[in-house]
Amino acid sequence: MSDADRELRVSKIRNGTVIDHLEAGQALNVLALLGIDGSGGEGVSVGMNVPSDKLAKKDIVKVEDRELSQSEVDVLSVISPEATINIIRDYEVVEKKRIERPESVDDVLACPNRNCITNADEPVQTRFIVLEDGLRCGYCGEIVREDEVATHLNVS
């Protein structure tokens, strides 16, 4: 496979964010985690199981016309700590963001405990404390293991 073929599959974007070096299989979870489902009209390209030097196989996500904030980026650490994030303007990388493991993840995940106050109609955002190998609801204390995080994304 030539480099040109690879370029075709995941084409360059003019403005937006490139999330690279995702663990293979995490691309769709990343989109869910960021609440991107295409309904906003943004251009989204996804490469899955792309050969990589760093990881045996990786996923890559490119989102046009959207620059991820640091808090959005930090959330990715929970499902893919090796990911790299480049902010693109006019085809150029203008910023490389480092993923840091946050102390908490706010307003991104829904608590899997149906009986949690954050699932009631209260003026409160979800807040998960980041543990070594998972997350914990800051309200009811429910624990979500790392491998379960993707299934509790706060997307409708």
């Binding site: 009986n115 949690c116 106050i117 409160v124 309200y139 009811c140 429910e142």
Partner: peptide, 13 residues
């Protein structure tokens, strides 16, 4: 006293 988990924690806010 409330039927939902985390209610007291939220109330303190």
């Amino acid at each position: 006293r409330h039927p939902l988990e985390g209610s007291a924690k939220m109330a303190t806010e």
